[in-house]
Nucleic acid binder design. Sequence first.
RNA 1: GCAGGGAUGGCGAAAAUGGUAAACGCGCCUGAUUUAGGAUCAGGAGAUUGAGAGUUCGAAUCUCUCUCCCUGUACCA
Length: 1043
Amino acid sequence: MNYDFRQIEDKWQQYWAKNKTFKASNDSNKPKFYALSMFPYPSGAGLHVGHPLGYIATDIYSRYKRHKGFNVLHPMGYDSFGLPAEQYAIQTGQHPAITTENNIKRYREQLDELGFSFDWDREVRTSNPGYYKWTQWIFIQLFNSWYNKVSDKAEDISTLVALFEKEGNAKVEAACDEDIPVFSAEDWANFSEKEKQEILLKYRLTYLADTEVNWCPALGTVLANDEIVNGVSERGGHPVIRKKMTQWSMRITAYAQRLLDGLNRIDWPQPLKDSQTNWIGRSVGASVTFNVLDAERPPAGRAGSRSDQDMISTPLNHPYQIEVFTTRPDTIFGVSFMTLAPEHELVAKITTPEQKTEVDAYVEATAKRSERDRMADVKTVSGVFTGAYAEHPFTKEPIPIWIGDYVLASYGTGAVMAVPCGDQRDYDFAKYYNIPIPNIFEGVDISEEAFADKETTVIANSDFLNGLSYKDAMKKIIAELEKTGHGIGKVNYRLRDAVFSRQRYWGEPFPVYYVDGMPQMIDLEHLPLELPEVEKYLPTETGEPPLGNATHWAWDTEKNEVVSNDLIDHKTVFPLELNTMPGWAGSSQYFNRYMDPRNDDAIFSKEAIDYWQDVDLYIGGSEHATGHLLYSRFWQKFMFDRGYVPKDEYAQKLINQGMITGTSAFVYAEAVWYRYSPQKKVTKHHPIKLPLRFVSKGRVDKPLDLIEDIGREDDVLNNRIKELIPNNFNQLFGQDNWVSNSFSDKSPDEIVSLLKGNLRFTFIPINTDVNLVDSSDELNIEGFKKWRPEHHKAQYEYEEDGSFIVGREVEKMSKSKYNVVNPDAICEEYGADSLRLYEMFLGPLEQSKPWNTAGITGVHSFLKKLWKLYSPFINSDAERSRSVTEAEPTPENLKTLHKTIKKVEEDIENFSFNTSVSTFMICVNELTAQKCTSKAILEPLAILVSPYAPHIAEELWERLGHTESIAEAPFPKFEEKYLVESSKEYPISFNGKMRFKLELPLDMGKDEIEAAVLAHEKTQEQLQGRTPKKVIVVPGKIVNIVG
RNA sequence: GCAGGGAUGGCGAAAAUGGUAAACGCGCCUGAUUUAGGAUCAGGAGAUUGAGAGUUCGAAUCUCUCUCCCUGUACCA
């Protein structure tokens, strides 16, 4: 009987579904293990072979843990809110819920095909009201919380109100907005209800604020920083501009330090930790305040030059201060100018009348430039002098104040103290505008560039800092700044509060209505607030988000339900929030919801969270490093602070699976140019539109895109052109240009002689469907013509053997490159077990590697060999076979088995799944050679294989006589005694090079080994009479003879 | 620029702690079987471990210098 994988896989997939083999219980005596794969966004394209990689790894580990006696939670669900379904709705009018439903169906089919051990009873979908009820609930919890810096955690807003009532806000240390006026308890008591709410909003962990946002006009929405790639939207590549809007924000900055600290306690990949660390961007330094000198009394002398000390030492009225943040306050004596961001609010106030025109022009020009331009153009130095001066806090000298677009309004205070000798950007600026560059470093040459290495120098020309190292100078200057009131030591973060509003339809509605402009939360008992139906999914004509199209979108505070907008009276019926939540909202707590996903009374029960605690193993892509994986940590910490979860980090171990890249195939299309010189010194290339010709790879001598680099005489080409000229002149050369004019009155022969030597041609690689290419890179031409009917008439230039070979290159798998390989076709041809094994066999889990379907035959024939090994149990007819199968295992059999147990167990623990597949192959090869038919060997082997190839393992297990699933069979126990050897084949090397091997007993001592080796004839042969200088003997390992 | 990770036969890769380089698989070659192809079986070829230096009895592995590739991030003061 042959290995009929289709029948076997169908059978067991049905069995698992019917018997709920992988259902996890929230109540068990077994130790728990929570294995989680990042849930997918169900896109319309379905899964390609890259997607299951991480799922297979998680599945193997889950199944292994089940064999090891754990109660395993291994859930799956869908991150089903998102842009593509909405874009599709805009284009076709199909409701995103329907699109999503269809896509999920397709995903589920594909997932089921692969035999995963998911507990599908726990499936979640972020777009289900029953799920997003709890996303809304968390939002409300955040709204009702503030961050107390004293207790260093989030607390209920009522504790803040209590503080206000008792002593006002002067002593309150909170993560909050910066523009909050100080008030007393008495003031608080006298505030109106609305004033109180306005103030509280500035403290809440989610708050409404006017924020500069990344507005994407094409998508009609705001984007988060991590949704923008290279200045354009991640989805669609549309331009993004800065715009001020009232938006919900999440006060993630309150958690900046804890998000940083937490990284030390979790086993996550270093690169991922690094990118979170960079994203949070902690920098230690000082905030320094510079007084702006009175504009009415500008100091004498040129900008930045030394001026008359007496004149400015008189006390001046300083209406304006510039606050800067610097990581190098120790270089404060090197300040020779200051730079403000063009958007800085002081710019308009301090600019002198003489400079006004120039400054205004610059500010305007900068505002017009998109963020993208500004980023791309890092090299150009630009700026304008404001005419104003600031006073150095220590020397009291005047410092010219400039504006420049290299200073960003969004970081720090939007102003810098420029120290050109210590910062390259300041240096370039100073050089460009001829501003002095005082040197404050001992013995350092700054004539060419700034000196930024803070560790290796000593401060000079800096008054009381002279002679100090960076470290000491830092301490001293901060103390001095604090003493004189000019500044304070400060830690700054790059991390910004996260904008939480999206102008989208297909997302979670905010459980918010507005009374007198102030946001009010809907009570939990009335949640979920379900997404309303709309006519159109586009923003409204007045520019409101899509929910503005809903006619039924008002909150009745008496009936506690959504009612028609017509009923809004601002007394009992109020308008609802029109924005929806961003993509990361639903994914920020899904891992906890899996613990108790059908609970309608709580996000999860106390029993469930107490039992499961946290995720033991989390596997997913690294692209979520600064998105999902940061936000979810933030929410978890918040949930921890408020006592809902027992752990403030939710995933102990995280693995990023590598990307599986595609191997694109290219056909080469000939492209011909005529090179001519319409004027002296001008060379142009004019395309000649020959009928399309595809050339096999071997005939492409130089597939270049640089036309200048290639040129050859080609009579064939010339003749083709000549033939085509009479009837196709315009088509070949185009009209209305120099070329056609100079050719129009020529005969074909004349034209060809003009062209001679001036033709340049290249071969343009064109992506072709990889499914039309076989394993030796030969293109199926008929298939190609069918796929691209427009190329039916094209000419094809073949190899000498008549084949047509494509070029290949490894690229990211994508629809547009036609290099996508689907798991379905592979399952159909080789089976799920083969696909699972092959994906693991491809290479280390975390590494990115190219897909090559051809290699799958290796693991597939391994499975066939495995099947064959069990044939005595499969061919149940003969009585004879039973006696054989009960046979005692030989020592050889046992050695092979236990070697395999040891290696596979180590491999799984180390997530080295690729090597255990090889181990299985070796094991089966050996057992086959040993003609092993012993049940005592084959039974444990089936369990070893089961996490990797569960279908065949179940089938073999059943054929071995079991009636229960293999899923919970105990993992075989490794026993050292079967591996003990009595002798070792020692490699004998001479000067480090292995020359021959010698079998010696393992209990032989060092001296005995040395004697035995030296006495050996081959040793004498190698030495050729020389006496060895030294003999190194490592018992059990190696012998090395030096001489 | 900065940070992180890489480079091992034609390809994917394997080699805890320095100790027989290339296990395992693909591909290739030869033979058997087969009408042929496929499948199967038996056998085989394939090497300055990116370059250079150092430490060592011994280096893919440790140290330094360089080259190239990937990934992330970027005027962060």
